[in-house]
Design a protein around this nucleic acid. Structure first.
Length: 829
RNA sequence: GGGUCGGUGGCGGAAUGGCAGACGCAGCGGACUUAAAAUCCGCCGAGGCAACUCAUGUGGGUUCGAAUCCCACCCGACCUACCA
């Protein structure tokens, strides 16, 4: 047995032992509180990078800490294994994505094991496994039956590089590029499958207050859903057709001076007069072309053309001109607006540019007709003028009053608009779960019967980067008999968005590959019901912020849909969420091959061991802040572990302090160590529970520094010394699982350190015996008093006044502030 | 344009109304060594011989007291954007 700290020996040894003992196997135990902890699962790209370590090892420490505090913890791992990289690798190398993916998974499993995490591998789920995706298809089928899944012909976002449609959430930035490859997306008109996530828009916003998620994510989701409340109002064209507009300010209806339609608006052609037709046509084709590049260049000046047509404002019968302009979007609201230049900056800019009428409607706070600036400023003050029956109505509350009036007079109705679009889930790619739908020339759209699931991906599809799924060229896959009439029919060849597969993986983990090999039915459950009742929902979820408006929104929607289908009884899938920050390269920039700043964790594990890499990543700074990797600072954690080792393990080869075991330890020194020990137990526990790993490690370092000193003193002959050794090993266990296990066994223990309880802190023993009270004069520190805690105020005041005599400089003492155990501030002047 | 988070020694950071800089890195000095590495001990915000003074992006404010709370501004990161 080596007396030196050799992580290369002890880490693989314990990893193997833990696996052999089944240390991390989980059972449902009714007598323990459960804790279901999930970390966002990785995509099997082939190599575990530093970002994975940064995401996974602190969440492992948190899960281990829960377990040591008496919780029955389920902490599973899996792979989000469908997706484009596998398919691109397939096209490049001429192999099927399946072997590429499974080889990567196997490699990553080995790398994950090197982290020494407590994952419950028997709960692993891999989304490209047919026994997994048969349930993804089952969910689609359930959603189809429930009317949540529907098919629609509409303009969709298309990435010409990935050759597939994208969900709105996967289109990023002002240049509208593809989330995955950065290529600007274009619009295509296609018939695609969608999920009715918009039906849950209100609940997705309102339920945010019931979950303990970072404010940042809640704000992002709220903005993404973009609820705005207002009214739809029916104007009338000269041809007598209703022209519906949406406004959030129905109280400004009397200030409307013109209307603007999106160039694609269906009424544009009938409104446009002969005289203006060629103008309008030119503008429309220009706008259509712009759409494909980027209609929203920064600071782009608003443009538009007059149609020659007019519409009637229903509230006052005024005829106002109708324009078209590309600042009005067909995809939002009704694609038509009334323009109120006096109260809307964009309308104002447009009216100014084209010489359209600007009218003032709302007064300033004083009741006099105000200037335009005042109108902008007084959005919620003042009263309405020039507003027919509403003259004199306070602006606050006017919108609601006008809406009521519109409804009473049948001119419009209250309406809510959302920015959120329905979730487009069709992908024209092969490496995904096939959408279980068959098109029959006689029966129409026929869903694949539950009992026929899964619709398997063929193993021999040919990969051609054509812009259509390779499944389309696979005759054996594509041509099938209609399940209803038996006649010739065709399968849907699009696959499911991989975000659908990852929307329910926290349920799959409960009992992976449930009912494997068995035919499914509509009334099945995709997981073991009683296990689900025990574990669900997720207590703690951790992962990156990048999924705030994608995965994190989809999985919430999914859970609400499952609830409405009767599959779960709760409303939210993850009760707590913590977003870790991003680990950066040593240069402070995002790690990337092109920058050449990529840190390979395997190298550092080989050099220092997994415990050091784990601890270092947690020591860098607050976990939610991320930060740059420091090539030198990792040494500090490595040294710390060596110092702990040296405190616990006596190397007979080395000269050890020889203290006479009969010498009585100095009681003050013993008390001092005892105090430090109990303070540390409290601090480290609080810090880990709050994900403040950096300060938890600092606390462990401080305790260890105290132990290093104590080891050279008579304190080693005390029972406190032995308690301290035992406790520090236990406290190391969540963050440094291997060295803790090794030291635990060297202390003579036979069961695993990871089965022990977190050491108990005694507040009485943590209490300080004396406190330093700062004496200030006018807020400046002039002296310090060392007193017993709880010293009475008059005593402190007297002592302080005596101490600061020479600072008083003959001036009058005006006031003395005494904060017990903290300070005395003498105010003079 | 809007939103969120942040700005503290040479560096990562600690302190969220009460001794600014815990813990660690780097640096400096010393011990050990033939020497180096490793390890151990000490110093380590700036100015000053010192008593002290100055110091948490900038400017104001609140307070006995502000890195911390409030207002305005500057800088950085991320998100979002003709949303009617």
């Amino acid at each position: 047995m080596s007396y030196k700290y050799t992580p290369a020996e002890i880490e693989p040894k314990w990893q193997a032992a833990w696996e052999e003992q089944g240390l991390y196997k989980v059972q449902e135990e009714a007598d323990k509180p459960k804790w279901y902890a999930v970390t966002m699962l990785p995509y099997p790209s082939g190599d575990l990078h530093t970002g994975h370590w940064y995401a996974f090892t602190p969440s492992d420490a948190a899960a281990r800490f829960r377990r040591m505090n008496g919780y029955n913890v389920l902490f599973p791992m899996g792979f989000d294994a469908f997706g484009l990289p596998a398919e691109n690798a397939a096209i490049k190398n001429g192999v099927h994505p399946r072997p590429w993916t499974y080889a990567n998974i196997e490699r990553m499993r080995r790398q994950l094991r090197a982290m020494g995490a407590m994952w419950a591998w028997e709960h692993e789920a891999v989304s490209c496994d047919p026994e997994y995706y048969k349930w993804s298809q089952w969910f689609f089928r359930k959603f189809y039956d429930a009317g949540i899944a529907y098919r629609e012909y509409s303009p969709v976002d298309w990435c010409p590089n990935c050759n597939t449609t994208l969900a709105r959430e996967q289109v990023w930035g002002e240049d509208r590029h593809c989330e995955r490859c950065g290529t600007p997306v274009i619009k295509k008109n296609l018939e695609q499958w969608k999920f009715r996530i918009t039906a849950y828009a209100d609940e997705l916003i309102d339920a945010l207050e019931t979950i303990d998620w970072p404010e940042r994510v809640k704000v992002m989701q709220t903005n993404w859903i973009g609820r705005s409340t207002g009214a739809e109002v029916v104007f009338k064209t000269e041809q007598g057709e209703p022209l519906l507009i949406f406004t959030t300010r129905p109280d400004t209806l009397w200030g409307a001076t013109f209307m603007v339609l999106a160039p694609e608006h269906p009424l544009v052609d009938s409104i446009t007069t002969r005289e203006f037709r060629s103008h309008v046509e030119d503008y429309k084709s220009e706008a259509a072309r712009m759409d494909e590049i980027a209609r929203s260049a920064k600071d782009k000046e608003k443009t538009g053309v007059f149609t020659g047509g007019y519409a009637t404002n229903p509230v006052n019968g005024e005829q106002i001109p109708v324009w078209i302009a590309d600042y009005v979007m067909m995809g939002y609201g009704t694609g038509a607006i009334m323009a109120v230049p006096a109260h809307d900056e964009r309308d104002f800019a447009f009216a100014t540019k084209y010489g359209l009428e600007i009218r003032r409607v709302i007064t300033g706070p004083d009741g006099a007709t105000g200037a335009l600036e005042a109108a902008y400023d007084s959005k919620s003050e003042g009263v309405l003028v020039n507003s027919g029956p509403f003259d004199g109505t306070a602006v606050a509350g006017a919108a609601a009053a006008v809406t009521e009036w519109l409804e009473a007079n049948d001119l419009g109705r209250g309406a809510v608009n959302y920015r959120l679009r329905d979730w487009l889930i069709s992908r024209q790619r092969m490496w995904g779960a096939p959408i279980p739908i068959i098109y029959c020339p006689d029966c129409g759209v026929v869903p694949v019967p539950y009992a026929d699931l899964p619709v398997l991906l063929p193993d021999d599809a040919e990969f051609r980067p054509t812009g259509e799924s390779p499944l389309k060229y696979h005759a054996g896959f594509r041509y099938v008999a209609c399940p209803e009439c038996g006649g010739p029919a065709e399968r849907e060849t699009d696959t499911l968005d991989t975000f659908m597969c990852s929307s329910w993986y926290q349920y799959a983990y409960i009992s992976p590959y449930w009912k494997a090999g068995q035919p499914l039915a509509a009334d099945d459950m995709p997981w073991d019901k009683s296990s689900g009742q025990y574990w669900l929902p997720v207590d703690q979820y951790t992962g990156g912020i990048e999924h705030a408006t994608m995965h994190l929104l989809y999985t919430r929607f999914f859970t609400k849909a499952l609830r409405d289908l009767g599959l779960v009884e709760f409303d939210e899938p993850m009760l707590r969420l913590f977003n870790q920050g991003m680990i950066l390269g040593p240069d402070g920039e995002k790690m990337s091959k092109s920058r050449g700043n990529v840190i390979n964790p395997d190298e550092f594990v080989a050099k220092y061991g997994a415990d050091t890499v784990r601890g270092y990543l947690m020591f860098i700074g607050p976990w939610d802040m991320g930060g740059p990797w420091d090539m030198n600072a990792i040494e500090g954690v490595y040294r710390f572990l060596h110092r702990v080792w040296a405190v616990v393990v006596d190397d007979p080869q080395m000269e050890n302090p020889t203290l006479d075991p009969d010498v009585q330890p100095d009681p003050q020194a013993v008390r001092s160590l005892e105090r430090k020990l109990h303070q540390t137990i409290i601090k480290v526990g609080d810090d880990i529970a709050g994900f403040h790993f950096n300060t938890a490690i600092a606390g462990l370092m401080e305790l260890n520094n105290a132990l290093v000193k104590a080891k050279e003193s008579t304190v080693v002959n005390s029972t406190v010394w032995n308690q301290a050794l035992r406790s520090i090993i236990l406290m190391l266990a969540p963050i440094f699982p291997h060295i803790a296990e090794e030291l635990w066994h060297r202390q003579g223990n036979t069961s695993s350190v990871h089965l022990q309880r977190w050491p108990e802190a005694d507040a009485e023993k943590a209490r300080v015996d004396e406190v330093t009270v700062v004496v200030q004069v006018n807020g400046k520190v002039r002296d310090k008093l060392v007193v017993a805690p709880g010293a009475p105020q008059p005593e402190l005041e007297a002592a302080a006044l005596a101490a600061v005599q020479k600072w008083l400089d003959g001036k009058q003492v005006r006031r003395v502030i005494v904060v017990p155990d903290k300070l005395v501030n003498v105010v003079i002047g």
